[in-house]
Computed example of a mutant assay.
Amino acid sequence: MEWLILGAAILLEVTGTICLKLSEGFSQLGPSLAIAPLYLSSLALLTLALKTIPVSTAYAIWAAVGTGLVAVIGIAFFREPVGVLKVASLVLIVVGVVGLHVGDRLSTAL
């Protein structure tokens, strides 16, 4: 259940970030009004997930998956440039999160 909560927290954070872009510097009312509730809801769910998921793992996943999703959405929908360095950097983020998760698993197994 805690992983579903973390997933929801990530989706809310990504949606809030997309609303930042869509707000066009807070000049668009709808997206501007959505930003704070989305981020607050995301943080509330992250807090709930932290009751059972180690903070190093939960925060890394929350930040990295959010970063990756926002990057993909930026490329796909906002026509942001994509290059080898950007893709390699995203891969490194994923590798780092997997490493943190595996490290938590190994330390609890010992």
Rank of each mutant, 00 (worst) to 15 (best):
residue 102 V to W: 08
residue 110 L to Y: 08
residue 110 L to W: 11
residue 105 R to L: 15
residue 1 M to Y: 09
residue 98 V to C: 01
residue 3 W to K: 12
residue 41 S to K: 02
residue 40 L to K: 01
residue 86 K to M: 04
residue 78 F to N: 06
residue 16 G to I: 02
residue 31 P to I: 09
residue 3 W to T: 09
residue 70 V to H: 02
residue 23 S to T: 07
residue 14 V to S: 01
residue 105 R to V: 10
residue 63 A to Q: 05
residue 90 L to A: 09
residue 84 V to Q: 00
residue 105 R to S: 12
residue 21 K to I: 04
residue 65 V to E: 12
residue 57 T to Y: 04
residue 11 L to K: 05
residue 63 A to N: 11
residue 63 A to M: 14
residue 110 L to P: 04
residue 6 L to H: 11
residue 71 A to R: 04
residue 8 A to M: 14
residue 96 G to F: 11
residue 66 G to N: 05
residue 27 S to Y: 00
residue 42 S to G: 07
residue 82 V to Y: 02
residue 105 R to K: 12
residue 106 L to W: 13
residue 47 T to V: 03
residue 7 G to I: 07
residue 63 A to W: 06
residue 34 A to G: 10
residue 79 R to I: 00
residue 81 P to W: 07
residue 71 A to C: 12
residue 23 S to I: 10
residue 8 A to Q: 04
residue 15 T to R: 01
residue 61 I to R: 03
residue 103 G to T: 11
residue 87 V to W: 05
residue 85 L to Y: 04
residue 47 T to C: 12
residue 30 G to I: 10
residue 60 A to D: 11
residue 61 I to Q: 03
residue 9 A to T: 11
residue 81 P to A: 13
residue 58 A to V: 13
residue 35 I to Q: 01
residue 48 L to P: 00
residue 39 Y to I: 06
residue 70 V to P: 01
residue 54 P to Y: 05
residue 78 F to G: 03
residue 96 G to V: 13
residue 89 S to C: 14
residue 94 V to K: 01
residue 93 I to K: 01
residue 18 I to D: 10
residue 20 L to A: 05
residue 63 A to E: 09
residue 110 L to R: 13
residue 52 T to Y: 06
residue 101 H to C: 04
residue 3 W to E: 14
residue 11 L to E: 11
residue 88 A to Q: 08
residue 108 T to V: 15
residue 23 S to Y: 11
residue 104 D to S: 12
residue 69 L to V: 14
residue 104 D to V: 10
residue 55 V to N: 02
residue 49 A to S: 08
residue 32 S to V: 05
residue 61 I to M: 13
residue 48 L to Y: 07
residue 57 T to C: 10
residue 100 L to S: 08
residue 99 G to E: 05
residue 49 A to K: 02
residue 97 V to Y: 05
residue 16 G to M: 07
residue 30 G to L: 14
residue 74 G to L: 04
residue 34 A to R: 06
residue 72 V to F: 10
residue 52 T to F: 04
residue 37 P to N: 00
residue 104 D to T: 11
residue 19 C to R: 04
residue 66 G to H: 05
residue 23 S to G: 05
residue 33 L to W: 01
residue 92 L to T: 08
residue 6 L to Q: 07
